[in-house]
Simulated assay, not measured.
Amino acid sequence: MPGCTTMSGATVGGSAVSRTELRTRDGAVAAATADAIAEHRARITVRDPSAVAFRISSANAEQWGADVVGVEGVRYVTEGAPIDYVLAGALVHGRVLLRSRRDEVRLSEGDGFMYPIGAEYHCDCIDPGLANLRMPLSYIARIAEETTGIPAAALRFQSLSPVSAPMRRYWSATLSFIAGQMNAAPTAPDALIAGQLLRLGAAAALVAFPNTSMAAGLTGGAGPESSAVVRRARAFIDAYAERPLTVTEIACAAGVGPRTVQLAFRRHLDTTPMAYLRRVRLERAHRDLRNADPAGKVTVAATARRWGWTSASRFAGEYRQVFHELPSHTLRS
């Protein structure tokens, strides 16, 4: 397709993750570090000198990242500059008032929130503990176009809060999982897993926070050439399953748009391109375990991570459902 670039080295999220961590009692140092997350002017009032502590853990991949912030013993008031990316989080502890020109929310433990895009905001925090995701708006817009058909340029987020209490809980749980993998897992995610975590965060934001894609639905049908589209897409997935592929890249390889490839897979295979990719990766993991020396250095956990599973138990469950045995049994046999 014109203007279609496939497998470029600049795939968002498809890079190794670097981590930084700060622990300090100095508010100025903490504010300077937090300014890298979102540019702001900070006013810090000490409430309990004996309890003052700042902890900021950041994990950064290609154009996106996750942060875990803990502040104790202070009131932290910020005047935030407009941002051009999605910065969404959940409150772990403390109290927060977040206000934009159009909206105001008071947050308590477990509440999800999104900072306004393209507008100044005010945030008044008392002993806050936060987890944040920083994601490119262009990437989320592309996911919205792939999944709903809305033009990427038409995506707008419309509120600081999730659409409902169930979505608030869903967003908080998803964010907790992503931040745990990015910031707290024993080893930082590799490029493949980082890309999948970013896609998970983007998809969660699209269903949790009010936005213009929610009015769009899957309509239309696959054309007469859709079987050829599926063949080309499958060949591409089979060749590059170890890469952090996106629906857009798969569609580009098949010579069509994301919407068309989605509909073609649904019509001919009753699945999605990403679900097909996951099945291919599962089969590759099965092959690796079957061919491994049981006395060698190959492990189930390492194989799972290589093919994109951050949770060994989830990998084992999916593996058993398809191959009717646990991966550890395949490795030993």
Rank of each mutant, 00 (worst) to 15 (best):
Y240G: 07
G223D: 05
T219E: 07
R231I: 12
V229Q: 02
P244L: 07
A241Y: 12
A241H: 12
F236Y: 04
P244Y: 07
G217N: 06
L245M: 03
A235M: 10
T246Y: 06
F236D: 00
E242A: 09
G221W: 10
G223E: 02
E225N: 06
R243S: 13
R232G: 08
E225M: 07
V230N: 02
Y240M: 06
V247W: 01
R234D: 10
A239P: 02
I237D: 00
R231V: 13
S226D: 10
R231C: 13
G220P: 00
L218S: 08
A228I: 09
S226F: 13
T219R: 08
A241S: 14
V230W: 01
G221T: 15
S226Q: 07
V247A: 06
G223H: 04
A239R: 14
V247K: 01
V229H: 06
R232W: 03
F236N: 00
R234W: 05
S226Y: 11
A228S: 12
G221S: 13
V247L: 06
A228Q: 12
G217Q: 09
T246P: 02
R234K: 15
A241L: 09
A235V: 07
P224G: 11
F236M: 00
L218F: 07
R234L: 12
S226V: 13
A233T: 05
G223F: 06
P224V: 14
P244R: 05
E242K: 05
A241T: 04
G220L: 04
G217P: 01
L245C: 02
V247Y: 02
A235P: 03
G220A: 03
P224T: 14
P224D: 11
E242H: 07
V230C: 10
A233R: 02
R231S: 14
E225P: 00
V247T: 14
G221E: 11
A228L: 13
A222V: 13
S226N: 08
Y240N: 14
G220W: 06
I237Q: 00
Y240A: 11
I237F: 01
P224N: 09
T219A: 11
S226P: 04
R231P: 08
G220S: 02
P244Q: 08
G217K: 08
A239C: 10
E242T: 09
P244E: 07
Y240S: 11
A239D: 13
S226L: 13
V230P: 01
E225D: 08
S227F: 12
V229S: 03
